[in-house]
Design a protein around this nucleic acid. Structure first.
Lengths: 195, 195
DNA sequence: TAAGTTACTTACCAATCGGTAAGCGACCAG
DNA sequence: CTGGTCGCTTACCGATTGGTAAGTAACTTA
């Protein structure tokens, strides 16, 4: 990790795009290699197996998510949360790639998994909620439920954009996203953010 | 359609379970045939291709969704909506199969698709919202956004259950679902349902 | 300059994929 | 008893899958 121009990062970026778009089973090493402009054995040279490549994609995603929280940092925890969720909404609607990856990972995860790349991210958000005025004495499950309802609403809309465009037209889909913005404010009020 | 003991229904049920669990690309005709106890050519005999079988699974899902709306029928549209969403929440948490199928379909749908099995279902919910006191003069996009935010929250939680159990334990996951219940009430108030 | 190490390549593999072709036994109407 | 349809089955197919083995050209280090 950390050579001057490590090719891994580029391959992970390509894999992120394709896994987000077609899922783990819908993505082949050959397709990844084609888009990356190398042979598929080049990928296996770095990641050994498709599964390990996928794990690295998810690990990079988890890192990005945590960085997103830190990027929205504010002195007041409630404002911090609000800023983070607003940024998440914008990012999810403009570049739904990560949202799709998260949802696909949720769908594909079974209870017996060994590693949970997203746990650290969720824990940080829960901690933030509990630092706010409204969420000070919330049990973990309650804080988690609040965080989940907001993230869920944002990401569900983000992954639905193509379907909405197809069903009602691109303009209508954009209008739905705009309306959603207003609805979010109400939901955010319940997460400990300023009203 | 409609012979005395049409085997199609049974095959569609098996396919529904597997497509919901592993997605379209993660499910093979051979695996479906194995669970159904027949050869895979038996499936091809009825559905011609895997894609057509998948389309029939989604069509049956759409029918089930519309039936869910009708089953919750009440004289007052606001109460009807509330009853439907409460039923949906319970069903999604107890049998997340359909929620998983819906989310997978959303992820896999590209804008250029020809058929949208869920559109009828969404249209009915939008119509219901516009029959309520609060939603009488809402434009389509606004009503759609309200419907989507509630469905999104419910189904996102439903598909996250295994991950939540894995990360925080089954008890904690159940507690999150219970907390979610209360949060839903607030969200439902914004969809035109009684406060 | 010799020995590694890095970043690949071509060649190949068994297993699995969705799908075709042809046939078979049970039932059923004429 | 005969012809046809229904609900399958076995046999087979070419393409693609993830993965292995063995090299090779370029660069770095001793």
């Amino acid at each position: 990790m950390g050579r001057q121009d490590d090719p891994r990062a580029g391959y992970i970026a390509v894999a992120t795009r394709q896994f987000a778009a077609q899922g783990y089973h819908g993505t082949s090493l050959a397709a990844l290699a084609r888009e990356a402009g190398v042979s598929k054995q080049a990928l296996l040279h770095f990641f050994s197996t498709k599964e390990r490549l996928y794990a690295e994609v998810l690990a990079a995603l988890a890192t990005r998510q945590c960085e997103g929280i830190e990027a929205a940092a504010r002195p007041d925890p409630a404002e911090h949360l609000l800023a983070y969720f607003q940024g998440l909404r914008e990012a999810a609607l403009e570049r739904p790639e990560d949202a799709r990856l998260v949802v696909r990972a949720l769908l594909d995860s079974h209870e017996g998994a060994r590693v949970w790349p997203m746990k650290d991210y969720l824990d940080r958000l829960v901690a933030l909620v509990r630092q706010t005025q409204d969420g000070r004495d919330l049990p973990e499950a309650a804080a988690l439920a609040r965080v989940f309802s907001v993230i869920g609403a944002i990401q569900y809309l983000a992954i639905s954009a193509p379907a909405l465009s197809g069903m009602y037209g691109k303009d209508a889909a954009d209008r739905v996203a705009a309306e959603f913005d207003g609805l979010m404010a109400g939901a955010l009020a319940g997460v400990g953010a300023a009203r």
